[in-house]
Design a protein around this nucleic acid. Structure first.
Length: 481
RNA sequence: GGUCUCGUCGUCUAAAGGUUAGGACAUCAGGUUUUCAUCCUGACAAUUCGGGUUCGAUUCCCGGCGAGAUCACCA
């Protein structure tokens, strides 16, 4: 048990995309590796961007990924002693803290209309001049009554130096912090203020978030100082870049939601493994990590400083690796919603038998139907598919049918008791006909599956059974008449 | 534009002054007596540039170049 406390603090403004997930993962690892607590806090202070149902989506995704939290929203209730865990429910708390600043003369109500400020900013920009609000403070600010925004007052601008677990020692000049709004005119706090109050109240020890917050650090440091708070440990994570260009991965560049990957047949283990290793590695050549391994091995010391590109091909490979590692029962469970039309109706035992020979070829769960349907229902005969095989395409139809006849008569006297027996019989067939394997086995495979890809011939035939195998060969022969 | 940050194969990364600069994904070529998306083998491929410091720089320092982030009553 330690007093380490980390948090993931998303905004319910839409679906959670893969770029967001990593900033949940690392705090989770840090909390779990030390026996500390992982807190989920909903940052819903922006009423304009609030999206109905977004919170449920976030929770659903965290559950799916296997990230459990010790404190935070829990169904309709909340769990943990430092709640509430929705910022909109903490309004009084922010006001109480804001009053501390007002009382110290470190915050003032700002009566200036937003348009006027905008005009000042535009003017400064046009003149290539730095705009500092502190040069335009209202002369006699009114008493703050909650209807006007409340601004933090920078009394002594100074340089800031601080340490970041990922980025190292950082610094910023005195103009990096200016008077900024801490409570909006709607009475809710801005992120800048709210997260500091919350982190303090919730005793958060590690602030782990995206790199985009680095430039705001002086603001936060000024606020910690003004509020008399100790600094937590900071760790700013590099961005995850979109597959194309050098842009940060975001929704408008088509960043997919985690839910989308789940529907596309990706395993949460692969997702976690992939995202955790985007910008982090344990210093060895290991590529596959379980959640437990990540928890044990994760360290900021090995987090990359520069952005990492999201490479779907690597994700796909990793997913295939994870699928291969699944036990048959586990795989069967996860395939529940991925069977094809006929597969879903098949008895469990048959489904498992099919999975066992198809497992190593699956890269995602959505591959299942194309890899399995012909086991459950007789495939549609399609001679055109022969053209996809270089070797078979050279033979004429009659010749191929001849071969199928030979195969039929050989196999009808074969015992289908095991794959080995079938293999042996197929080998004899080869000798008797003096045909090349690529031709003979190729045409048999097509006659049985009419699919571009399938598992090995003996496995396929063994699973299909003698009657069905022969019936399919016969159907192929008959189809040419 | 100001401020801040970053810069190793196409991509993810290892090497925290001394290695033929390593691994993985992708790609390509072989192989596993049928296909193949599995598996095995192999090939291709990188230190942004210029100055220092040093016996020796991917590594430390300075400058250029390139890239990104941020400058909101968004988080």
């Amino acid at each position: 048990m330690s007093n380490i406390r980390t948090r993931f603090a998303p905004s319910p403004t839409g679906y959670i995309h893969v770029g967001n997930v990593r900033s949940a993962l690392y705090p989770y690892f840090i909390a779990r590796q030390s026996g500390g607590k992982f807190v989920l806090r909903i940052e819903d202070t922006d009423q304009n961007r609030f999206v109905e149902g977004a919170e449920d989506l976030i929770i659903d995704v965290l559950h799916w990924l296997g990230l459990d939290w010790d404190e935070g929203p829990d169904g309709t209730a909340e769990r943990g002693g430092y709640g509430p865990y929705h910022q909109t429910a903490r309004k009084e708390i922010y006001h109480r803290w804001a009053m501390k600043l007002v009382d110290k003369g470190l915050a003032y109500a700002d009566p200036r209309p937003a348009e006027e400020i905008k005009a000042l900013q535009d003017q400064a920009k046009a003149e290539h001049r730095l705009f500092l609000y502190r040069d335009h403070r209202p002369e006699n600010p009114p008493i703050w009554d909650g209807t006007m925004p409340l601004r933090f007052k920078v009394t002594e601008p100074k340089d800031y130096h601080w340490h970041d677990e990922v980025m190292g020692d950082l610094s910023a000049g005195r103009d990096a912090v200016d008077d900024f709004i801490i409570i909006k005119s709607d009475g809710l706090p801005t992120y800048n203020f709210a997260h500091i109050v919350d982190d303090a109240e919730m005793k958060i020890t590690h602030v782990i978030r995206g790199q985009e917050y680095i430039s705001s650090m002086p603001k936060y440091l000024a606020l910690y100082d003004a509020l008399g708070l100790d600094y937590p440990i900071f760790a700013h994570l590099p961005h995850i870049l979109a597959p194309e260009g050098n842009k940060k991965l975001g929704k408008r560049d088509g960043a997919k939601s985690v839910t989308e990957y789940r529907n596309d047949g990706y395993l949460p283990e692969a997702m976690v493994n992939f995202l955790a290793c985007l910008g982090w590695n344990d210093g060895t050549e290991q590529e596959i990590f379980t959640m437990d391994e990540l928890i044990n091995k994760f360290s900021f010391a090995h987090v990359q400083k520069s952005g990492a590109r999201f490479d779907e091909k690597r994700l796909l490979w990793l997913n295939g690796q994870w699928i291969k590692r699944l036990s048959l029962d586990d795989l069967h469970n996860r395939c529940r919603n991925f069977w094809g039309e006929h597969g879903q109706l098949a008895p469990v035992e048959q489904q498992k038998a099919v999975l066992s020979i198809v497992q190593e070829r699956m890269k995602t769960l959505v591959d299942l139907p194309s890899l399995s349907e012909y086991f459950f229902a007789r495939p549609t005969i399609n001679w055109d598919i022969i053209a996809t095989s270089k070797q078979l395409a050279k033979r004429d139809r009659n010749n191929l049918v001849e071969l199928l006849r030979a195969a039929y008569s050989k196999l009808s006297t074969t015992d289908f008791t095991s794959e080995d027996v079938i293999q042996a019989s197929l080998n004899e067939l080869l000798e008797q006909t003096d045909e090349k394997p690529v031709i003979m086995f190729g045409i048999i495979r097509f006659a049985l599956t009419w699919a571009k890809f399938s598992p090995g011939l003996p496995e396929t035939m063994h699973l299909l059974g003698k009657d069905e195998s022969l019936a399919r060969l016969q159907a192929a022969i008959d189809s040419t008449n």
